[in-house]
Simulated assay, not measured.
Amino acid sequence: MCQRIIFVCLLILTLGTGCTSKAALDNNQTAQTDNAPASKSDQPQYNDERDPFEGFNRAMWNFNYNYLDKYFLKPVAHGYNDYVPSPIKTGVVNFVDNLDEPSSLVNNTLQGKWKNAATSGGRFVINSTIGLLGLVDVADMMGLSEKSESFSEVVGYYGVPNGPYFMLPAYGPKVTRELATDWIDDLYFPLAELSTGQNIIRLALKGLNARVAAIPQERLLDNSLDPYSFVKNAYLQNVEFKLHDGKVPQKQENDDIDDYLDELD
């Protein structure tokens, strides 16, 4: 979310990688009331191959969703969304997204997407000049829609799998491929020229924009049977959607649905 806060070790010590879901905790409390020690069969069983560290990830989700988001990110996002004028919010989104256009140019090129690469380059030039440093998306008005690509999608295009799913404290969901490659996108101009403070502000604005965009989904998430699984499956589907430019193979799409139904069972 706002920035990559690395205090995983501390949270492991305090929460433990074997932290259980709310339902599992209720079961344990019932067992303790009956003075019967919980057996191994009473412990939560996780069998999602995409999520081999689910116990740890659920602990991080509990921290992110029930504490960090509930008491800080959600109030900030709603206040920003309710009281900041729409033109300013749109300008902030445009400005932050414009900084990523050069990396999209390179990443599209590395995948042989020449037209998309030219579009990304054209968008950066047009929006950085006529669009007042990216505050106004003039390129989109001219028919040049955004063709965002990350280096993670580049290596995925050449066959590197997602790898295990992780729920990071404060930052949110990621797959291993993204964790290993996201830093490369920051090496390109103009991101490479930003100071540490400027980059923190950029990440904070990017996180704020993402959190505001998620407001319409809050009720759906809150009413889901298992919010953790809901977010995980939605995120992994989005990773595949971006990797295949919206054309996810039908077999893979069906497998994702089957995995989600299996988790609910």
Rank of each mutant, 00 (worst) to 15 (best):
L15W: 05
L15M: 12
L15P: 02
L15R: 09
G16V: 02
T17F: 14
G18A: 03
G18L: 04
K22W: 12
A24I: 07
A24E: 12
N28I: 15
Q29K: 13
T30E: 13
T30Q: 12
A31S: 09
A31D: 11
Q32A: 15
T33L: 14
T33E: 14
T33V: 10
A36E: 15
P37C: 00
A38V: 14
A38K: 11
S39Q: 12
S39F: 07
K40P: 08
S41M: 14
S41P: 11
D42P: 04
D42I: 00
D42V: 01
Q43T: 06
Q43N: 09
Q45H: 10
N47R: 12
N47L: 13
N47E: 14
D48E: 06
D51N: 11
G55D: 01
G55F: 03
N57M: 05
R58T: 03
N62I: 07
F63E: 07
F63Q: 07
N64I: 01
N64Q: 05
Y65T: 05
Y65R: 05
Y65H: 10
Y67E: 08
L68C: 04
D69Q: 08
Y71L: 00
Y80G: 04
N81S: 13
D82L: 15
Y83P: 03
V84Q: 00
P85D: 04
P85H: 03
S86E: 15
S86V: 15
S86D: 15
P87E: 07
I88Y: 12
I88S: 09
I88V: 09
T90I: 10
T90K: 11
V92G: 00
N94G: 01
F95A: 01
N98Y: 05
L99N: 04
E101T: 03
E101D: 08
S103H: 05
S103R: 08
N107H: 02
N107E: 04
L110C: 02
